[in-house]
Design a protein around this nucleic acid. Structure first.
Ligand SMILES: [Mn+2]
Ligand SMILES: [Mn+2]
Ligand SMILES: [Zn+2]
Ligand SMILES: [Zn+2]
Lengths: 135, 135
DNA sequence: ATTATCTTTGTAATTGTTTCAAATAAATAA
DNA sequence: TTATTTATTTGAAACAATTACAAAGATAAT
């Protein structure tokens, strides 16, 4: 919790109790969680926590560049505290999302394009995960 | 309409009136439309068309491999009748989605991975489009 | 013609997200 | 400190996209 406190400051985010708790969860659970997963995980120890606060908090984190929102899951927004350039894998069966590899320089290279001003890239792979194959 | 009739058969989709109309729209409007856009476009000429049918139809098309569902837009599912390997660009301002380039062989190459059985890739770029810059 | 199967339709339910105003907490000024 | 302003959290309601489902309609098989 102290760590997340510090961590938030690096992104000039004022560390409230709720924000620190959310960031702490993200730092310790690198599973690209949904809003609901975050809320359900924190709710027991913070009974007054509102889901709206989780939404507000994640919006703020994204705006400040502390976390990245992933589009890989059509159902729910997914959040990643790892903002380095890396690709993801989503299992079609269980829906879990995993880091798959770091993007090398030429893959991550944002292409020059006359029609669009490109500022970011998202590379997603789909298939079946190890765990689901063994079922 | 005759064309889409034929086209559907290639994917062993039985071409009903509704299915042909939806496929015809997709073939002639390569804008990666949402369900709603498809429904609103067809609705005037097919007043009895149900939105549920549009959902059913697109689910079937995806299942049969005739169209690809894109995850690039968090709000709505987007559908692409072009199933070739190509990357997309989404404008953060107006939300429009464009084809940006074909994926070359080494980019499209699905990586071998011991933990996951990978079957597809989606590469998305984000930024601001030409039109929105000039505003 | 009858029966069975496939497809479409409209409604209702569900889910994820956003809006918003009141309540609470934190920061600043007096 | 106390008062005042500003920032944050909260819960309820509104909203939007999708899904579930059962009845109606169309098509195919007997
Ligand atoms: Mn990640
Ligand atoms: Mn496309
Ligand atoms: Zn899995
Ligand atoms: Zn634009």
């Amino acid at each position: 919790m102290l760590e997340s406190h510090q961590y938030l400051r690096q992104f000039s985010i004022k560390p409230s109790v709720q924000r620190s708790a959310v960031m702490n969860f993200l730092l310790k659970n690198r599973i690209h969680p949904t809003i609901d997963e975050i809320y359900l995980a924190l709710s027991p120890s913070m009974p007054t926590l509102s889901k709206t606060t989780v939404y507000n908090t994640l919006d703020l984190f994204v705006e400040k560049g502390a976390v990245r929102a992933l589009a890989i899951d059509e159902k729910n927004a997914r959040y990643d505290v790892d903002i380095s350039a890396h690709a993801h894998f989503k299992c079609r069966s269980c829906g879990s999302i995993h880091d798959i590899f770091d993007l090398n320089a030429n893959m991550y290279q944002l292409p020059e394009n006359k029609s669009f001003k490109i500022d970011s890239i998202e590379i997603s792979y789909f298939g079946i995960c190890e765990h689901c194959i063994g079922n």
